[in-house]
Design a protein around this nucleic acid. Structure first.
Lengths: 110, 110
DNA sequence: TCAACATTTCAAGAAGTGTAGAAATAATAT
DNA sequence: ATATTATTTCTACACTTCTTGAAATGTTGA
């Protein structure tokens, strides 16, 4: 992930509704979730607002979409999220690995 | 780091000048850098623009400041950056550790 | 105390972002 | 064909953010 992509990702995640969408999609797993279900989960059902935010996230590369019958199913882009984590980690250790200490330790899933 | 703090951090990092400031400060290490030096490094010297962005970053908890004689010295808040990385990592693995795979691997400094 | 330096605060305008409702598109079922 | 369901696109407006220049604040040295 390069700087422009990271900027876009940060901008996408800096909005409550969008951050919620990403979390919901991450929980949903690789199968993804239809727009309607996402809307219900984040409290923006059937609205143009949802489309707006989903579009923003897709633009930033944090989610992908596919049509499935009547539904449009969104999925978290795990690779992009990982790339963002790497970007931050790199930034934080830049030239001074000793500073970050615990940051360089493995992060495990709880 | 909780959700509101993460939102503020993402918002702070979603701006080119501010992202540059953070990178410069991380490189500078724990001694930090005076506002003037930061301004030169990021191409916003002697401007109120710089203050605006530094204030934004400080508000988000990503940098701290202290007066040193005539200078005001800013330092990267490494703990906050680490907290943000943890937040993202947690989000990404939420309920589905097997999904993230490589994300759960140790991140090392290069 | 006065002058110079480093940085911030203030005020105003331009640009960008988020929200809401109505109309448009796409797929399915009758 | 028509109606129904799912979602997006369009338009307009309120709100926030970024930038700029001028004035104010705090610190040091002569």
């Amino acid at each position: 992930m390069d700087e422009p992509a990271a900027l876009a990702a940060f901008a996408a995640l800096s909005q409550e509704t969008r951050l919620r969408i990403v979390r919901v999609l991450v929980e949903a797993g690789p199968d993804g979730l239809a727009a309607g279900a996402i809307g219900e989960a984040v409290g923006a059902a059937g609205s143009s607002r949802l489309s707006f935010h989903l579009g923003h996230l897709e633009n930033a590369g944090l989610v992908t979409s596919r049509r499935e019958g009547r539904f449009i199913v969104y999925t978290a882009a795990y690779a992009a999220l990982g790339g963002l984590i790497d970007f931050l980690t790199r930034d934080c250790c830049q030239g001074h690995p000793e500073i970050c200490g615990p940051l360089a330790a493995p992060r495990t899933c709880t």
